[in-house]
Design a protein around this nucleic acid. Structure first.
Lengths: 342, 342
DNA sequence: TATTTTCGTGCAAACGATTGCATTAACGAT
DNA sequence: ATCGTTAATGCAATCGTTTGCACGAAAATA
């Protein structure tokens, strides 16, 4: 049997309410009593039942995580481990723990979110992806439940709090970087087009081309669902063009690996015949051959900041408008683009 | 305000207890009433409060996850995403959700586990790592709380349920495989020595050498904490030996990437001058250059099976002895060991 | 028709905390 | 000696469910 607050009360010769106040460290309890009670708790090995507490309290000290559906292999991207590490670090610091449901289909994850919100299982939610036209975000917004999204939400983004990288800027920067290295024919290989991040990065890419006075060649822009083909199709398509590019911006390290692997098969050497730059600076970027030049976006920080915002939001009564946090990024130059700037 | 069971009861003109029985789909309630109640629930948008339910029920429908401390970068290994995907799939199928605490230090994760167990926040726990002499496993065992570990627990493993790969066998097999390819000087590069998995794999490696009549050369066996050096030291050490190996068994794909990257820097070509084989068959194995020959250990399956065992264990009153599940593995031949067997 | 079963539902007591309000004792101040 | 004040603690209601037991009505049996 579990040892309850009553047991402690009896042991310490006080009322349960007193024990409760000792737990909350209320100033209304004398020091002497506090010590007596604490000792009793210690002796009996008392731990408060979280459900009783949540029920009385109307608070759970838990944060819900919404992940993309388990079916999509997106989850295999180390991005998620890292962002979760950030979330859980901040959460832990503030005494929150993490709670996750998943589902195979999109509908299932939606149902999971609804029941964890309505069932009051968590105090707030962080949404780990952003897709166009998402029911989950809509729901959270409608129910006025505290939440923040990692990445840029599409709909009504002015009213939702989110933390993101300036992907547009980053896209612009890497493209310019390639131009500075002397490349004129620069392609873009991205993931699914309905991810905000892809759109932003490609947007920055195009802007940079324009700003640098380079033509925008639509056949240089390909997108491929990474996990199925590994970007192999994309590369083959690009290389079969009349004027193949000499450099490529890849929207994700994982995909860049696939791209380089395909190039390798085709005996196109990186960086000599093809420069590759990508984003996220996952730890594998360091260990690929050649090591990847990639944009460090501080994934851990994204998670950490998001949680920070969420906690703020949960503590304030009125959350008026969405807050927007941009986590800074910077380019980490390794070897996939060749030497230093010309 | 939340809509409670009483609201539904009032709306449907029944007692709260009846509503409760409808939720549980008790056969004692007539079909007609059930429908009336269900409609009321629908109309009011009722969702049961999980804490009230857990409190009355003494059950939480949640499974706790114990991860290595967040400080160690171990977490970045895609292994975890994948095993969690397996866990969460099975969990979801059975109506369980996932709950995780983390901590920076080992002591913190221990405290997290204790309070989630004693606080009755979860019905069972899956432990995602196994280290020598671990307090967490000891605690769970002492409190007779349902748990299963992924990987082989050290202490008293006959009494704890675990699911694992036959790492010993796998280590043996890959070593023999290399020998079959004609290699006589085979090295082993592993991660931290106090991980069960490292010990097992190296054990299999040694056995294979013996069985094949090859000498065991202790200087061929190096272990390196991956995340700091990426195995670079290990490679350099090996290559500076009087008789450097011609093949190497690496205990993890991540590390193999680091090894290959270092070899690449040293202009030692894989597989021509050095064959590399590793374990886990992470998706990056497919996209490295050259693609890695690796042992597929079905990480998803490990998580899935573990959860399966856990659920079994939670449903039975008496869990007598530890159960042991071995998930099968097989070698996936790619290019890091050169052509096919001689 | 009387008596026993069966069926469907309601009552009220848990589950283990929190918290507003009441109570008591001690202590100065008048 | 009496009367506020304050400090420390206890009482009891509450949070939203579940569930054992009781109860009445209908159906089955004699």
């Amino acid at each position: 049997m579990q040892v309850t607050i009553k047991d402690v009360a009896r042991e310490a010769n006080v009322a349960p309410s007193t024990v409760s106040r000792v737990i909350a460290n209320s100033p209304r309890i004398s020091q002497k009593t506090k010590e007596r009670v604490r000792q009793a708790m210690e002796e009996l090995g008392y731990y408060p039942n979280v459900h009783a507490r949540s029920l009385a309290n109307r608070t759970t000290q838990a944060i819900g995580l919404v992940m993309p559906s388990a079916a999509t292999k997106t989850l295999q991207n180390p991005f998620f481990s890292e962002v979760i590490r950030g979330i859980s670090t901040k959460a832990h610091q503030n005494g929150y723990s993490l709670y996750m449901t998943t589902g195979v289909s999109e509908e299932e994850v939606y149902e999971g979110v609804v029941s964890m919100v309505q069932g009051r299982r968590v105090d707030g939610v962080v949404v780990l992806y952003s897709r166009t036209d998402d029911k989950v975000v809509q729901f959270l917004q409608d129910s006025k439940f505290p939440f923040v999204v990692v990445g840029k939400p599409f709909s009504d983004s002015s009213h939702v709090t989110y933390v993101d990288t300036d992907n547009y800027l980053a896209g612009r920067e890497v493209t310019k970087y390639l131009h500075q290295l002397g490349h004129e024919c620069i392609a873009f290989v991205g993931g699914s087009q309905d991810l905000a991040v892809t759109q932003e990065r490609v947007g920055g890419y195009k802007t940079a081309l324009m700003e640098e006075g380079l033509p925008i060649n639509e056949s240089y822009i390909v997108s491929a669902p990474f996990m199925t083909t590994g970007g192999a199709d994309a590369v083959k398509r690009l290389m079969s063009l009349e004027h193949p590019p000499t450099a490529v911006v890849v929207s994700d390290d994982m995909m860049a690996l696939g791209v380089m692997s395909t190039l390798n098969e085709m005996e196109i050497s990186v960086p000599d015949q093809m420069a590759v730059v990508s984003f996220n600076n996952l730890f594998i970027a360091e260990f690929s051959s050649p090591p990847l030049t990639s944009v460090e976006i501080n994934i851990f920080g994204l998670g950490f900041e998001a949680t920070n915002c969420l906690i703020e939001q949960m503590n304030e009564e009125a959350t008026p408008y969405g807050k927007r946090v941009i986590v800074p990024h910077y380019l980490v130059v390794r070897q996939s683009c060749g030497g230093t700037a010309k």
